[in-house]
């Protein structure tokens, strides 16, 4: 295990150290001390590292991650794991707005609550939220799965494309073109796999599924009110 103290080396010191590691490095496990809510910690990683961040982080922690597994032992700011490609970002606490925004792949787990716009424009990432998500979550969500074990705020899945949303609790309201959909065996299997990966105890059968009615896919004047 290697330790990096953000207080001593700064964000630049941490990122340049982590970026300099070759993909096949033996120094896989890194602990980051004193993150102190700083922004852009452990962004753009490109190797199968295992990273424990001991405290709270600011914006974009784990942004554009590839292959690395990050655990944030605290709360996270805006845009956690934004545009993640692969790997895992695991937030032990809560996460602010736009968690997992535009993520292409990998798994984002938020044990606590996520704020508004969770999974906005997601493009293939899987997101599991132990608590609730705020309004406009999964706005224009294209691909991937968003699983919410608590409740969802207003306008869930507004203008959604092909992403799949699963919510166990209440949905305050659905956004334009987002509807409740039938839960079939393949969906239950997906849910089971992802809940397990996120070490959740919830039962897949307790969730409801939401997705696109696909009515806004090609412009029609009869749907102009929905825009």
């Amino acid at each position: 295990m290697n330790e990096l103290d953000l207080h001593k080396v700064g964000v630049r010191g941490i990122n340049s150290q982590l970026h300099s590691l070759p993909k096949n490095t033996n120094e896989k496990h890194w602990v980051i001390q004193n993150p102190r809510g700083q922004h852009s910690i452990a962004v753009g990683l490109d190797a199968p590292l295992q990273i424990d961040i001991r405290g709270h982080v600011g914006f974009y922690c784990g942004g554009m991650n590839k292959d690395a597994e990050l655990t944030i032992h605290g709360h996270a700011g805006v845009g956690t794991a934004e545009n993640m490609m692969s790997g895992v970002v695991w937030v032990k606490g809560n996460s602010s707005e736009s968690a997992g925004a535009t993520g292409n792949g990998g798994l984002l787990v938020i044990e606590g609550d996520a704020s508004s716009r969770c999974g906005i424009s997601m493009k293939g990432i899987d997101i599991v939220v132990g608590g609730s998500v705020g309004h406009m979550s999964a706005f224009m969500a294209q691909r991937g799965n968003l699983i919410v074990c608590g409740d969802a705020g207003d306008a869930l899945g507004d203008s959604i494309y092909e992403a799949r949303l699963y919510v166990k609790g209440k949905v305050a309201s659905l956004g334009a073109d987002c509807i409740e959909k039938e839960m079939r065996a393949e969906h239950l299997a997906d849910l089971e796999r992802l809940l397990k990966a996120a070490k959740r105890k919830e039962k897949p059968s307790d969730f409801r599924r939401y997705g696109s009615a696909r009515k806004l896919y090609n412009f029609s004047v009869d749907h102009a009110d929905a825009y």
């Binding site: 922004h39 736009s98 535009t102 292409n104 424009s121 493009k123 224009m140 691909r143």
Partner: peptide, 29 residues
């Protein structure tokens, strides 16, 4: 990452920041 043949709308605001203070953080990232 979208199906073929459907209209692709691009949002007018960035998904993970709003305003100049956030933009500064985005540039830093």
């Amino acid at each position: 990452c979208l199906p073929k043949g459907i209209d692709q709308r691009s949002a007018c605001r960035h998904p993970d920041w709003t305003g100049p203070d956030d933009l500064e953080i985005k540039i830093h990232e």
